[in-house]
């Protein structure tokens, strides 16, 4: 796969504040590349620098192998943007909005008409073409926002937190749509602070915080970077300190906590972690009610790498 986007040593300062600090990234053709980080980590700033909207202090940005600049009109023809805020006109209908923004790229009326209809079909807004945006629900507005960004069939699409304040049903539709775009050949750069989405959607992920690269790789590669590989929770009554110490001394276990009859064990990679602990407690005569095991999330990755939660709620 060829490289569609390359960013090397990007630095963006706002006076004393360094918003992006020597950021490197590389996006290959046909992949969904996730840019994950908490609010204010520099995701949107990075996107805006890549799109030549923002002046930056240092670095090199190439799209389709060519340097990106405000006057790089040939490159811009192949780019689509779905901004974080719903960027449509309230006084135009759904159809008119898509036609208007598609018209910035496609001048031929017949081609545009076809593309607009395909975009409407893609986001399933056929029943709402004559509606004004203020008559649409939040989820439908987001879909319109997407349609306006992809109607001209770009090869590289930037989705900047497209699911903020969207209900779960619409969110799933949006995520499915993005996968479909990838399947049709588009390359997608997706920013979000929702780790579940990124985990579900992205082929490769770059985690950033305060403008710094924290980690980069596939979901598996990122999870492999941290010690914790399993979180085991067991509901068991009356555990004494001796039993807890025994659990702590088990293979792969590096963290144990016990509160409100909930035993929580964090373990490193091992094939039989759950069985080992359950056997140990059974041997000591403890009766267990519920047992479950979770894989670490990207939040755990972020927590372990930065010492703080990914979500900033």
């Amino acid at each position: 796969m060829s490289e569609i986007l390359s960013v090397k040593g990007l630095v963006k300062r706002y006076k004393e504040l360094i918003a992006i600090d020597h950021l490197d990234l590389s996006v290959k053709e046909g992949e969904i590349f996730g840019l994950l980080g908490p609010n204010g980590s520099g995701k949107s700033t990075t996107i805006n620098c890549i799109l030549a909207l923002l002046e930056y202090d240092k670095g090199e940005i190439k799209i389709f192998g060519e340097p990106m600049s405000p006057k790089a009109y040939e490159i811009k023809k192949q780019i689509g943007i779905v901004p974080q805020d719903v960027a449509v006109y309230d006084s135009l209908t759904v159809y008119e909005n898509i036609d208007f923004f598609c018209g910035l790229y496609i001048k031929d009326k017949e081609t545009r008409k076809k593309y607009v209809q395909e975009a409407i079909d893609f986001v399933a807004l056929n029943d709402f073409v004559k509606f004004k945006p203020n008559k649409l629900s939040g989820g439908l507005k987001r879909r319109l926002n997407i349609a306006c960004g992809i109607a001209h069939k770009p090869k590289l699409i930037f989705f900047d937190e497209p699911t903020v304040a969207v209900d779960p049903q619409s969110r799933n539709k949006i995520l499915e749509g993005i996968e479909e775009l990838r399947d049709k050949g588009a390359t997608v750069i997706y920013t979000s602070h929702y780790m579940e989405e990124v985990e579900q959607l992205c082929d490769r992920i770059l985690i950033i915080d305060k403008g710094h690269t924290i980690a980069e790789g596939t979901v598996e590669e990122l999870k492999g970077m941290i010690k914790k590989s399993e979180i085991i929770t067991i509901e068991v009554a009356g555990l004494d300190n001796k039993a807890l110490d025994m659990v702590r001394e088990s293979n792969n276990v590096y963290s144990v906590s016990y509160e409100n009859n909930q035993l929580k064990v964090e373990a490193g990679s091992g094939k039989h972690n759950v069985i080992d602990i359950v056997n140990l407690l059974q041997d000591k005569g403890y009766k267990m009610k519920k047992i479950f095991s979770e894989q670490p999330t990207l939040n755990d990755v972020f927590l372990e790498l930065t010492g703080k939660q990914l979500r900033d709620e």
Partner: peptide, 16 residues
């Protein structure tokens, strides 16, 4: 583009 998101679409587009 520093005033509205709609303008961001204009600036990113190839239109002069």
């Amino acid at each position: 583009a520093d005033v509205s998101a709609v303008a961001m679409r204009y600036s990113v587009s190839p239109a002069r």
